[in-house]
Design a protein around this nucleic acid. Structure first.
Length: 291
DNA sequence: CATAGATCCTGTATGC
DNA sequence: TGCATACAGGATCTAT
């Protein structure tokens, strides 16, 4: 559920509440919530000061004062990063707790489904003057990144011989987009997710990326999207963008463009929502055809 | 190498 | 009422 706008809301909250603080204790309550560390999570983090909070796509990372290591977090489906006073009782699905040397509010990683996790990683060059954790070096820049190169993004999509929604959801092609915002961007571009990348003009793909950027920026202004209170900011509060969705979850509702009823289809083992009139699947070549 | 499908996980909703 | 099943789905692993 948390996609780029929701993760960015969390990033801003963390930047305000944990920047500059020194980690004094790491308590792992569920081993599955921690993976791919350099050494032990506690050994890598204890005594380190948090320099800032960075994000690429759906990944967050907190560079540490030592200079070469960061605390990395991914919320998965149901992960939450909460900043809570020690007086607040432990959440039912509390997985990892970070305490600080100032004895102020704790940082808690809470995750019902444990698809998410926290880990330590080495910082390496991102090839453009910045740094990012080595374990996410395969993740492409996201459309809200000031350094996002739209022409390069179009080229990466065109280089994939697959359906356009698959390409949009592939974080190594363009990051930050999940099932909700993919459906919203495709609806705005009047494209069916099964249309093939090879059958689309660079102009159309550029337009689609523009819609993805716009819809995620609009969602961010409203604090993100939430359906069931699983997604919350660091204070445990939900966003409001679900009231503004045009396609995702709107089965049977009239399309905002033409009034046809939004349909629901299975795609990649999950639900996709689209307008049967505005978003025609078309014919065109099949993915297995040679160029 | 690239792409596609299975898999992890648990709470909620639905059906019989 | 209670049990079984479907569903939510991002990223990783495995198979082709």
């Amino acid at each position: 559920m948390p996609e780029l706008p929701e993760v960015e809301v969390v990033r801003r909250g963390l930047a305000e509440k944990v920047t500059g603080r020194v980690i004094s204790q790491v308590e792992v309550l569920h081993p599955r919530a921690v993976r791919r560390n350099i050494g032990s999570l506690a050994d890598d983090l204890l005594g380190e000061r948090i320099r800032c909070v960075s994000r690429r796509g759906k990944y967050l990372w907190l560079p540490l004062s030592g200079g070469d290591i960061a605390l990395v977090a991914h919320l998965g489906m149901s992960g939450q990063l909460l900043v809570r006073s020690s007086a607040v009782p432990d959440e039912k699905h509390l997985r990892v707790r970070f305490r600080f040397a100032d004895n102020g509010p704790q940082l808690r990683f809470v995750d019902q489904r444990t698809f998410g996790g926290v880990m330590s990683a080495r910082l390496v060059s991102d090839g453009g003057g910045g740094r990012l954790p080595d374990i996410i070096s395969h993740i492409s820049p996201d459309p809200l990144d000031p350094a996002f190169d739209e022409a390069a993004g179009v080229a990466r999509i065109r280089a994939k011989n697959t359906e356009i929604k698959r390409a949009l959801l592939d974080q190594s092609v363009v990051s930050g987009i999940g099932n909700i915002y993919a459906d919203e961007a495709l609806w705005r571009a009047k494209l069916h997710g099964r249309r093939l990348t090879r059958g689309l003009t660079p102009t159309k793909i550029s337009e689609l990326l523009g819609h993805a950027k716009a819809v995620m920026a609009e969602a961010l202004v409203q604090g993100g999207t939430s359906f069931d209170a699983l997604y919350v900011n660091v204070n445990g509060e939900s966003g409001y963008f679900d009231r503004s969705l045009s396609a995702y979850g709107q089965e049977g509702e009239p399309c905002g463009h033409c009034g046809s009823l939004i349909r629901r289809e299975k795609f990649m083992g999950r639900s996709s929502f689209s307008c049967p009139r505005c978003q025609r699947q078309g014919k065109g070549p099949r993915p297995q055809d040679k160029v």
